[in-house]
């Protein structure tokens, strides 16, 4: 691993107070989601007499249409939302890094075909196809992770490709090639470790997209299914009660906004620090 670049990421994180704030908040969310079982309420215990209560001292976020404690449910929803976002990002990063490095390293017709493929995927209305595929296959968390991952890797592939193009001309990569190391080893041992910060930044921004996608799909009823619930699927049932209990709509949506905002701020700050020229989208 390239120590110097890693330290750069760390330094940038602590220097910028917005990035640090976003980072700390995300850690807090993660811990709250992990320790959701500490809540005194059972997220699935119904109690009809307590239904649709507004936020109060006992139920911080009120109760839902079955009288379940909404704060606890939001915490458990965070687990699903964050897990789907994170796992989809992994899928997208794996595909994107593979395609990007292969495309950039080999060039020629391989590069041509792969980049054409990326172009096609970018010019189809992916949200509609995601909806469709979710309906075709059995909707659920695994399907959702694979589908979101498969439709969001293109941007990562492009960035990784352009980084690979510049790195493969460096001496150490030349030496590796000249000393007879296989292409696979050159890519995994010499190229990928050196573009790791770029991949991490792209991954951070990708989580933001993935969480938004998941919430939209689940909101339409084609994502996370019962008995699991994510923030998006909670909003799906909450919209029916928007008139009498609008807090049910307020909290999960606000948390989606906040989480995505944190990932976006974090990713952007790091990106600006590492690619000063490409930071505002003028670089293709």
């Amino acid at each position: 691993m390239n120590k110097r670049k890693w330290n750069g990421v760390k330094r940038e994180l602590f220097k910028n107070k917005y990035a640090l704030m976003a980072f700390v908040l995300l850690i807090v969310f993660l811990i709250a989601a992990l320790f959701a079982f500490l809540s005194p309420f059972d997220p699935n215990k119904m109690s009809i007499i307590d239904k649709l209560q507004s936020p109060n001292g006992k139920h911080l976020f009120g109760t839902d249409e079955y009288g379940r404690d909404y704060f606890t449910r939001v915490l458990y929803g965070a687990r699903v939302s964050l897990a789907v976002g994170f796992l989809s990002m992994i899928v997208a990063v794996v595909i994107g890094t593979t395609v990007g490095t292969v495309s950039g390293y080999f060039g020629g017709w391989i590069d041509n075909i792969l980049m054409r493929f990326v172009e096609v995927l970018m010019s189809i209305p992916s949200f509609f196809l995601m909806l469709l595929l979710n309906a075709y296959m059995k909707p659920g968390i695994t399907t959702l992770v694979l589908i979101i991952g498969f439709f969001t890797w293109m941007e990562i592939a492009r960035i990784v490709r352009s980084e690979t193009l510049s790195i493969k001309e460096r001496e150490y990569v030349m030496y590796a090639k000249a000393s007879g190391q296989s292409s696979f080893l050159t890519i995994t041992k010499h190229i990928i470790p050196n573009i790791a910060p770029t991949i991490i930044i792209a991954g951070t921004l990708n989580i933001a997209t993935a969480i938004l996608m998941e919430s939209s799909l689940s909101f339409l009823g084609l994502g996370v299914q019962q008995p699991n619930s994510s923030w998006g699927s909670m909003l799906n049932s909450a919209q029916g009660y928007i008139g009498e209990a609008w807090h049910l709509t307020l909290f999960p949506g606000f948390l989606i906004l906040f989480t995505v905002l944190c990932f976006n701020v974090l990713g952007d700050v790091l990106r600006v620090a590492f690619e000063p020229k490409g930071a505002n989208g003028e670089k293709k």
Binding site: S216, F219, L235, I242, G253
Partner: peptide, 18 residues
């Protein structure tokens, strides 16, 4: 601007309706 790119559109819609 950050809020704009981070907000789930459907939720923003629901809030506006409310």
């Amino acid at each position: 601007a950050y809020i704009g790119i981070s907000i789930p559109g459907f939720w923003f819609g629901l809030m506006l309706i409310y």
